[in-house]
């Protein structure tokens, strides 16, 4: 097992280095000169902008720039924002807890909703609760998050005054964006839970449990859930990546000061160090989650190790 984990980590590191290179390259290919954008309407003579490009190291060969960036990153220095002159690491550290709170809450919500609706549907397979859940799930995955977000704001903030419309100051501010983020994933989780449940409900050991006259709550709670939980958890873990993607949109809708808002803003301004930092962070998060998931898989199903 230990060797398997080590091997996975060994693979994750070069992946991250490659990710960093791709991000770096992509940003340089995107049209838009960060120095030109830094000056408002009256750009100084080209010579002055060239000087600034030199100061920022933008005039060096691409590979040299990348090497310098990699070297600094490995020492924990993600550089300094072109715009605010603040260290990227501290800009990210400021916002990361909020995004983690958002994603964590959303994951919990998605899991709760997904499990309950999935179980409900499976227990009433083919009847109206099942159909209704399917319909809800479809609605869940087909609503764009920016639209859903505005609707939730209108309902819970403007009409009912239960929750704040925008901002990120308190945990209450995370509720609406987390819900927005969660619904699509809850729909997917509900579908998966349902299908796994239906299958397991049909298996012998469950039939036996029913036959023994065990109360339904116990059958579902002990026998079925235990078997559904593994694929479910795996899936929920994998959705972290999606949630991070979603955070880019949702944080903008709710004015939620997290990593996603920072990323979109930095990209628009071509603030390369900040954008790189944000993407790298997202990629690291994704790789870490995958690592954990793969290790879990390896624990549950030894066959996987040979495949990987």
């Amino acid at each position: 097992m230990g060797r398997y984990v080590l091997a996975r980590i060994g693979v994750a590191v070069p992946t991250l280095v490659l990710v960093s290179f791709c991000v770096f390259l992509m940003l340089r290919l995107v049209p838009g000169d960060p120095v030109r954008l830094m000056f408002g309407m009256t750009p100084p003579p080209e010579s002055e902008m060239a000087l600034l490009r030199h100061e920022l190291g933008l005039d060096e060969p691409l590979l040299a720039q990348y090497a310098a960036f990699l070297d600094r990153s490995l020492h924990g220095d993600l550089g300094v924002s072109y715009r605010s002159k603040e260290p990227v690491a501290s800009m990210i550290a400021d916002r990361l807890p909020r995004t983690l709170r958002l994603i964590g809450l959303s994951l919990v919500l998605a899991a709760l909703l997904g499990l309950s609706f999935g179980i409900l549907a499976a227990l009433h397979s083919g009847r109206w609760p099942d159909l209704a859940t399917s319909a809800l799930a479809v609605v869940g995955v087909s609503i764009p998050q920016f639209w859903l977000g505005l609707m939730l704001i209108l309902l819970f903030a403007v009409r009912l005054h239960w929750l704040p419309a925008a901002g990120s100051a308190t945990p209450a501010h995370a509720v609406l964006p987390a819900t927005t983020l969660a619904l699509g994933n809850a729909a997917v989780l509900a579908r998966v839970t349902r299908s796994a449940m239906v299958e397991i409900l049909g298996q012998d050991f469950v039939r036996t449990a029913w036959a023994k006259g065990l109360p339904p709550a116990r059958v579902v709670g002990v026998h079925v859930l235990k078997n559904v939980l593994i694929p479910f958890l795996t899936l929920a873990g994998l959705q972290l990546g999606d949630l991070l993607s979603g955070a880019f949109v949702v944080e903008n809708v709710f004015g939620y000061a997290g990593i996603g808002q920072l990323g979109v803003y930095a990209m628009a301004q071509r603030d390369f160090p900040v954008t790189q930092g944000v993407v790298l962070l997202a990629a690291t998060g994704y790789v870490l989650v995958n690592l954990v998931v793969d290790v879990l898989y390896g624990l549950v199903d030894p066959r996987i190790r040979y495949d990987a």
Partner: peptide, 9 residues
């Protein structure tokens, strides 16, 4: 590598 980028990004 590709999966490590959030899809939207």
């Amino acid at each position: 590598l590709m999966l490590a980028f959030p899809g939207l990004l």
